[in-house]
């Protein structure tokens, strides 16, 4: 029997002494794409930040297993090296750090962790440029500092580009569709779909069905008040879109 890629067991966690996630359970196997849908302020980003080890959150109880390892004991960089990637909701600007140099450093840090040789600089830059084209980010943009002067949509496309370059085993897309026009949404969705290879897993966090029309999930979870209140297939997203969160929650309480 193979172990699940990610297992979240009875997780309770919060920030500033306030409990946001309550007895949360979720299991994701290799190759599965899960969508976590919930209203604003339900703590969806808290979950993704805890999964990636961001400081400032505290876990009061529960365990998280990733590839059988105790995830909460790993630093953010170790989690990335183990294969977790978070496409952030609001990626921060980092003036003075060029994208190519940053990405090369990132790729090589992960390769080093895995005992693989570093990549040749010229080949790497060529590869990033090729990938960049897929996300409509040209060579000039890739030379710029990380996210500096990028529009909301450009930031999201850069997150998707990083995901394509880093090829994680498990990608979390936190509101990857917010702020995207329909063309940009298509670009990001195509990039995400290109990474679906039957082995890679994803957790798509969103409160609209929009992205899920392009990236069709295997499972949909409705998340409210700190826990999953209903799990279903792709049709659940459409159902939710009809009733809205308020109606849905009334029915499912």
């Amino acid at each position: 029997m193979t172990i699940p890629l990610l297992e979240i067991e009875d997780l309770s966690a919060g920030v500033d002494g306030k409990e946001i996630i309550k007895d949360f359970n979720l299991t994701i196997n290799s190759g599965e794409v899960h969508a976590l849908m919930g209203p604003n302020g339900a703590g969806k980003s808290t979950l993704s930040n805890i999964l990636c080890g961001k400081q400032g959150y505290h876990v009061t109880s529960g365990r998280i297993w990733f590839k059988g390892k105790d995830l909460l004991k790993l630093s953010p960089e170790e989690r990335a090296c183990e294969g977790i990637f978070l496409a952030m909701q609001s990626p921060v600007e980092i003036p003075g750090v060029p994208i190519t140099a940053f990405l090369k450093h990132s790729v090589n840090a992960i390769r080093k962790y895995r005992g693989e040789p570093e990549l040749d600089t010229m080949e790497f830059i060529k590869m990033v440029r090729e990938e960049g084209k897929k996300f409509n980010l040209d060579a000039e943009m890739i030379k710029r500092a990380v996210n500096v002067g990028f529009s909301g949509g450009e930031k999201k496309r850069l997150e998707a580009l990083q995901m394509a370059v880093l090829k994680p085993d498990f990608a979390i897309l936190d509101e990857a569709d917010s702020g995207l026009d329909i063309d940009a949404l298509k670009i990001v969705a195509d990039g995400v779909n290109a990474l679906r290879d039957g082995k890679r897993s994803m957790l798509i966090i969103t409160h609209f069905q929009r992205l899920l029309e392009h990236v069709v999930p295997d499972f949909v979870h409705i998340y409210a008040d700190g826990r999953i209140i209903k799990t279903g297939g792709r049709e659940l997203a459409a159902e939710l879109e009809q009733t809205g969160y308020a109606g849905f929650m009334k029915e499912n309480r």
């Binding site: 990636c52 990335a80 090296c81 990637f85 952030m88 750090v97 990405l103 990132s106 840090a109 992960i110």
Partner: peptide
């Protein structure tokens, strides 16, 4: 956090 979340120590 952004840099560390991309694997950079």
């Amino acid at each position: 956090f952004y840099l560390r979340s991309r694997g950079i120590p």
